[in-house]
């Protein structure tokens, strides 16, 4: 579920200017998943609600994951 990221926490100075596509690839995916999550619970109950909880938890999971990772690299 989590996007692949380089292990190094230090930014890669060599890849100085990444394209907009590069920068927005993951956010776009997260945005689409959230949009699906917002819509799914509207159309039905049961399994649809469950999928919606999962989808909308993605931003929370990302924040926890990256914060935790940044803390560990101390």
């Amino acid at each position: 579920m989590l996007p692949s990221v380089s292990k190094a926490n230090v930014p890669n100075r060599a890849r100085n200017h990444r394209s907009a596509w590069d920068a927005f690839r993951v956010p776009l995916l997260v945005g689409l998943v959230c949009a699906a999550g917002l819509g799914l619970a509207l159309v039905g109950d049961g399994i649809w609600d469950g999928l919606s909880w999962l989808a909308l938890s993605l931003p929370v999971a990302l924040a926890v994951f990256y914060w935790h990772r940044a803390g560990r690299s101390h």
Binding site: P3, V5, S6, N9, P11, N12, R13, R15, N16, H17, R18, A23, R25, V26, P27, L62, F65, Y66, W67, R69, A70, G71, S73, H74
Partner: peptide, 12 residues
Amino acid sequence: MRRLDFGTIRRR
């Protein structure tokens, strides 16, 4: 974010 990976937090 031009020089950073998604989710990078420069804690140091």
